[in-house]
Nucleic acid binder design. Structure first.
Lengths: 245, 245
DNA sequence: CGTACAATTGAGTGAGTTCAAGTGGGGTGG
DNA sequence: CCACCCCACTTGAACTCACTCAATTGTACG
């Protein structure tokens, strides 16, 4: 109970030396003058797994850039039905949306999936920062455009793809995002902490069916998950499944 | 062939007298100085049904505010699978997204569903307009926030609701949007031009099953569609289905 | 060693699909 | 004015992907 040991990995004091800041929303500023970002940082936080960071409908005055660990954005109804809109990985901003719509309620809740360390900023500071220069505004537009594209892709997935196709799509999406951040090993494997329950809620399936589909893909030698690590064995087959199914 | 007769309804010359402009993205400007909007308007356009207005992946330099008629935003794959992201009704802006991400490629295609009349604007002009005043920026943030919320809702629908629930949700959403624009009659009925095929593509179902579900709801006395007009007979039941199923 | 949670497996069911055929209205050409 | 056609809607029957319920195994942790 007392003093629960978090497996955390704290960011360096200076954002200039942070291997993650180079991929965060404020990366143009980090490239120019990293101390500007450090100066705005209000805290470095260690959060245990399963903690709620943002509650749907509330107006957040604080937001976090993940340094290590994963989180989920989700909506939950009273009857227990849940939908996970996205997985947040290191470098992602918890509630980037708040930068676009300051003072408007959050469209989803955010919860840590693993122990997490993150850098906290006041929403207002971040709003100023990301609108404060041409390169930051471009970066923001790029990030939002990517987000919109992602959501449209996900809508298509849920409406028109099979369980296998959706799973393949999700795996590739996460792999690509982690690859940019240099978090994919040479053997095409990477840390993958979500439970099958989370995959089910993200893909609009049940845990049981996710399990069967995962087993099927494993037996086919496409990819497998072991000890919170996902390894892609047959990239080509995975691409094909993501495209066609 | 020659001179196909469009059933069009042209907007008035002055935006100040336009019953639709009051609900468009530039409504704060219309309230203050309607001639500003009129001045930016490059054309009033009549477009027949089935015409493509925007092609996915292209960078649009023009956008349109619908005055009459409907359009759809959609993605289509080579194999024919299609997903309709949203229905656009009078007052909506074709590719409002372009205002947020100028010079970035459109995330979906847009096609007219019926004959349409619309006001055309240069993207750059519109970008300036909607960022040009505090009230416009607020309105833009509000519109985008609503869009994001809508997309999250739709994601939840596709992942976690039955065909009946999705259909009910869609009908209520469109009713509410039309109601704001004063396009819903006293008997809770409104123009509804989409084919069952479009509903299927929007909801991730097949036309056949949409037909069966529609028939079921009609027999239950919830709502019915006749001659491109939808009438809600039992609002309470519809709300319940949208909530619970 | 016991508890708790995650993954796995089996059997039965059902929501939604596929294929195929039939209906009905509105427009067009003869 | 009628015949024809086209398109959207409708219906039936067989099928299957994914769900539900329920039990079992594996694993981490105290």
């Amino acid at each position: 109970m007392g003093g629960l040991a978090l497996k955390i990995d704290r960011p360096p004091l200076s954002c200039g030396e942070c291997r993650i800041a180079r991929f965060a929303i404020y990366r143009p500023t980090v490239a120019d003058s990293p101390q500007k970002v450090c100066h705005l940082r209000k805290e470095v936080r260690a959060t245990p797994a399963g903690r709620t960071l943002v509650r749907e409908g509330e107006v957040p005055d604080f937001l976090y850039v993940l340094y290590s660990g994963w989180a989920i954005c989700y909506r939950q109804r009273g009857d227990g039905r849940r939908h996970i809109a996205s997985f947040l990985v290191p470098g992602d901003t918890v509630l980037l949306e708040a930068v676009c719509f300051p003072n408007l309620p959050a469209p989803f809740s955010v919860k840590t999936l693993t122990d997490v360390s993150s850098c906290g900023f006041a929403t207002n500071d971040m709003v100023e920062l990301v609108h404060g220069s041409v390169s930051q505004r471009q970066e923001l537009a790029r990030a939002r455009h990517q987000l919109l594209n992602f959501m449209h892709g996900r809508l298509f997935d849920l409406g028109r793809r099979s369980a296998r196709g959706r799973l393949a799509q999700l795996v590739l999406d996460i792999r690509d995002r982690l690859a940019v951040r240099e978090m994919v090993a040479a053997d095409n494997s990477f840390a993958f902490p979500p439970r099958q329950e989370h995959l089910a809620d993200a893909l609009g399936l049940t845990t049981v069916y996710v399990n069967r589909t995962l087993g099927q893909l494993r037996r086919e030698g496409v990819f497998s998950i072991e000890q919170e690590r996902l390894t892609i064995q047959d990239e080509h087959a995975l691409q094909r499944i993501a495209q066609e199914e």
